[in-house]
C-alpha cells in the first residue's frame, strides 16, 4: 500500500497530465456534435450574461456603424413596400379586348394566368405581395402562407468567431423567445447559419463558416441545385458551391440562393454570388467559389427563422427512404467520382 501511494505521488504529474489531456481532447472532439450537453458553451447562463455585457459596452463605441447598418436594412425593406416604377404606367381600366360573350374585358378584371391559378398557396402569397405594392419576393418574407404568419425572431449577435476551423455565433435569444435547435438564422444580407444549442436566453449558432455545415442551395438564374460548404483554409468572405455538374453553364456574378430542400431555410434566401469557377477534366463537378453575401466580420443583427413544418416532411422523407432525388443523384455521382 505504501508503495502504491509512493508510486502515485512519484508520477502524479504524468498521470494528471494524461488525464486532463484526455478530458480536454474528449471535449474538443465532441464539440461539434449535437448530443453535447448545452452547458459547456458560450450559450450557458453565466458566460451568456458576461458576453452580453461585453456587447453592451463595445456597442457603445460602434453606435454609428450599427445605426447605419440598421438604416440600410430599413431602407431596403421600405423600398420593397413602394410600388415599382412601372406599376402605374398603364391605366388599369383600359379595355384589353372582348371575351367570348362579347363583353368588354378590362385589364384589372382579367382572370389570373393559369400558371398561377394552379397553385393556390402562391396565389394567396402573390395577392399579399400585390397588396403591398410589390411583385418582387422579399428574401425575408417566407414562402407558404402558414409560415409567413409567424414572425422572424430578431436577435443580436453577442459573440462571434471568424478565424477558427469551426466558427460559432452566440445570440441573445433563447428558448424563452421561441428559438429551438436546428432553426435557420438569416440576416438582411443573406444566410448566416443554423442554431445548434439553446439555453433559456441565449443560443449558439454554427455559422456558415463551420466545416460541417452544408446549406442546400441553387443558382437563381437557372435553378441548378448544389450545396454550399466552407472547407478548411477558406477565408470568411468566401465559400464553395459543390455538386454543380460540369456541363452546366456558369456565369460570374450569378446569385446563389437557398433551395429550401433541407427545410432549415426557406427557399430563395440569398447566400452569395459566384466569384470564380473551374472545370477539371477528371471531375464531374465544377469547383465554384462564392463570395458570401453576409460580411461575418461585422455581423450585428440577425433573424431566426420560425419553425417550418419540417417534422412532418422529414419523417415522410425518412419513411420512404428518399432524399430529394437530385441531391441523391448528385451524391451518387460524387461517390462514383471518388472511387477511381
Amino acid at each position: 500500500m505504501r508503495n502504491l501511494i509512493a508510486f502515485l505521488l512519484r508520477y502524479q504529474g504524468v498521470m494528471l497530465f494524461v488525464l486532463l489531456e484526455v478530458v480536454s481532447l474528449y471535449f474538443f472532439l465532441t464539440n461539434s456534435s449535437y448530443q453535447r450537453a448545452a452547458f459547456f458553451n458560450s450559450a450557458n447562463a453565466y458566460m451568456g450574461v458576461l458576453l452580453a455585457r461585453r456587447t453592451q459596452v463595445t456597442d457603445y463605441f460602434r453606435l454609428d456603424e450599427l445605426n447605419k447598418q440598421l438604416q440600410a436594412d430599413n431602407a431596403q425593406l421600405r423600398r420593397q413596400l413602394f410600388p415599382p416604377d412601372f406599376a402605374h404606367r398603364e391605366a388599369d381600366s383600359l379595355p384589353v379586348g372582348r371575351d367570348t360573350l362579347g363583353r368588354i374585358v378590362y385589364r384589372h378584371l382579367r382572370p389570373a394566368t393559369p400558371q398561377v391559378a394552379t397553385a393556390p398557396g402562391l396565389l394567396a402569397q402573390n395577392a399579399k405581395l400585390r397588396a403591398q405594392g410589390s411583385l418582387r419576393p422579399d428574401t425575408l418574407l417566407l414562402g407558404g402562407s402558414k409560415q409567413a404568419t409567424q414572425p422572424l425572431v430578431p436577435a443580436r449577435v453577442i459573440n462571434n468567431s471568424l478565424r477558427e476551423v469551426d466558427n460559432y455565433l452566440t445570440l441573445n435569444v433563447g428558448s424563452v423567445d421561441g428559438v429551438q435547435p436546428d432553426r435557420g438564422v438569416i440576416s438582411a444580407a443573406g444566410v448566416v447559419g443554423k442554431v445548434q444549442a439553446v439555453s433559456a436566453h441565449y443560443a449558439r449558432v454554427a455559422s456558415v463558416l463551420h466545416s460541417k455545415l452544408q446549406v442546400a442551395a441553387q443558382i437563381k438564374r437557372d435553378g441548378t441545385i448544389g450545396s454550399v460548404s466552407w472547407p478548411e483554409g477558406t477565408d470568411y468572405s468566401h465559400a464553395m458551391l459543390d455538386y454543380i455538374p460540369r456541363q452546366n453553364r456558369l456565369v460570374k456574378g450569378d446569385s446563389v440562393v437557398t433551395s429550401g430542400y433541407n427545410s432549415v431555410f426557406p427557399a430563395g434566401v440569398f447566400i452569395g454570388t459566384v466569384e470564380s469557377f473551374t472545370t477539371e477534366p477528371n471531375k464531374n463537378f465544377s469547383t465554384v467559389t462564392l463570395r458570401l453575401g453576409v460580411d461575418f466580420s461585422r455581423l450585428t443583427y440577425v433573424y431566426v427563422v420560425p419553425t417550418p413544418p419540417r417534422a412532418e416532411r422529414d419523417s415522410l422523407e425518412q419513411h420512404t427512404g428518399e432524399l430529394p432525388a437530385p441531391v441523391k443523384a448528385a451524391q451518387a455521382q460524387a461517390a462514383k467520382a471518388k472511387k477511381p
Binding site: 489531456e21 480536454s24 474538443f28 464539440n31 459547456f40 458553451n41 458576461l50
Partner: peptide, 26 residues
C-alpha cells in the same frame, strides 16, 4: 496542471472551442 486546465477550459467556454485551449494549456 489543474490551473492550466481551469484556465483553458474557461476560455474554451467563452470561445466555443470545446477543449482546444484546455488541451494546449495543460
Amino acid at each position: 496542471l489543474l490551473l492550466g486546465f481551469a484556465m483553458g477550459f474557461t476560455v474554451d467556454i467563452a470561445h466555443d472551442t470545446g477543449g482546444l485551449h484546455a488541451a494546449s494549456a495543460v
